[in-house]
Amino acid sequence: MKNTAAMVEVHVGAARVRVPAGSSVAAALAQQPPGRTRLSVSGQWRAPLCGMGVCHECRVLINGRERLACQTVCEDGMHITTSTAHTGGAA
């Protein structure tokens, strides 16, 4: 592990999370293990699977825009919201 003192603080929902600088959003989310990210079509919680931007299980809202948590580095003040799948779009 790199010996780095630099830490970064992000918002995960209402909570504040501190991670070493350079950590991915996926790592920040995993501070509440196992780091779930989104609700699937049938309502299951999911978490990162492939770790390399292929599976798209880790899509979350970062400062309001949908991005992949495993490929996004945490920045001070970032707002992260785990995204819920929207079911029943039409009443």
Partner: peptide, 8 residues
């Protein structure tokens, strides 16, 4: 068209 999945 709103799909039942919530996609448009």
């Amino acid at each position: 068209q709103p799909r039942p999945t919530g996609q448009w």
